[in-house]
Write a protein that binds this DNA or RNA. Structure first.
Lengths: 211, 211
DNA sequence: CGGCGATACTAACAAGCGTTAGTTTCAAAG
DNA sequence: CTTTGAAACTAACGCTTGTTAGTATCGCCG
């Protein structure tokens, strides 16, 4: 049983890596099996089809992201203002996409390989993020904290900005996840028209960071 | 000659559409040929390989985008400030990605199908956009017009924000390219810390646009 | 008219694809 | 010791893939 569970996990691990790097269509069952250390036919002891592997990974990635965002939002005080909510949301989003770039790649680029049914489910899961962020922006605008230019476009622009971190972040790079999150939180605050002049005046300006 | 040129163009048109919609790997030479109205083997009278079609389309899309940006920048007065430069750049970028979503899809998602040589060339072409925008932001920050948080991350965030328009814009939607560009120009100005309070005070605030 | 180049066709190739059937292995349960 | 069931194996199926060779068609130039 232990070896069985670890084989499933090995398939998940290898599939995730290969789908993210080479794409779903360009990855073959034989290549996955070879990397796992078994024969191609043996994969079907664990997954019904190639598409099932992709769906398992897509679903897992989306639920993991959902959990991280929920956890991040739950740390907020009940009376947290819109700015804090936006910060928590953007921080969780950026952190996930930096530290889980393979999962991010699958959710953002390999979903075309899913069946129509699974595709719809994935899109629906992803839409909840847009709704969540949209609520934060709407509330912040209503309370006067934010000055949103256009709700829908702002939501998409912020989300896509966070997602794009997965395309360039490297664990061995010069920027830590904390530093990156801090910058993106500030960028998102600017995008929604949060006035942070008081904040900036409190600390010394140091010019453009060239890194 | 005339029919020959139009066949090449038909292959380009069909390949562009299919690569963008289904992905490079999932698109077969027979499917392209069928849509063009010829046999699969006849494609090789016009392109040496499947990868050559992808490269032709990738190269064409990148050069088209390059042209649009150059044209947009050339309309500026020689003494245009950084804000005008940023506006021209973002406007051209957003407009291209809205009106040419198929080309955008290929450049942003199908490049994995390219050979190593062609891939490097494409990445190199794309890097010029980052350099251009980076220069605008650096100059604007140096002159005090902008208050950039982090140069590299701001460049990537703005570019990715523009690119993402290609994933949701529809010609039959409710937003015109002009309206979208106007919003994204404002968003980019906020991201670089351009102070537009004077501008906003001049026009009436209307709350969040829900559309 | 005769030839020529461009472009289309047909037919096939070798390779690879996802998947399946049937069999073997082997550790745990009875 | 026997039974059982999970999980591996081998070997193949039917199909599709990108690509090529050889041939036919047809408008244009000399």
């Amino acid at each position: 049983m232990m070896s069985g569970a670890s084989t499933v996990d090995a398939i998940r691990r290898v599939g995730l890596e290969m789908f993210a790097r080479d794409g779903y269509e360009a990855t073959t069952m034989r290549a996955i099996a070879s990397e796992v250390g078994i024969q191609a036919g043996s994969l079907y002891n664990h997954f019904a089809s190639k598409e099932e592997i992709l769906w398992d990974l897509t679903r897992g990635a989306l639920m993991q992201l959902t959990s991280r965002i929920r956890e991040s939002m739950e740390t907020l005080a009940v009376d947290a203002d819109a700015r804090d909510q936006l910060s928590a949301f953007v921080d969780a989003h950026v952190r996930f996409h930096a530290l889980n770039s393979d999962q991010a790649s699958i959710v953002n680029r390999q979903m075309a390989g899913l069946s129509a049914t699974h595709y719809r489910q994935a899109v629906s899961l992803r839409a909840t993020f847009e709704t969540q962020l949209g609520d934060i922006l709407r509330n912040g605008d209503a309370s006067g904290e934010f000055h949103v230019i256009d709700l829908r476009m702002s939501v998409i622009a912020i989300l896509q900005m966070c997602i794009s971190v997965s395309t360039w972040y490297r664990a061995d790079g010069k920027l830590s996840p904390d530093e990156i999150c801090a910058v993106y939180v500030q960028l998102s605050q600017r995008m929604v028209g949060f006035d942070q002049r008081a904040l900036m005046a409190s600390g010394p300006r140091k010019g453009v960071s060239q890194r």
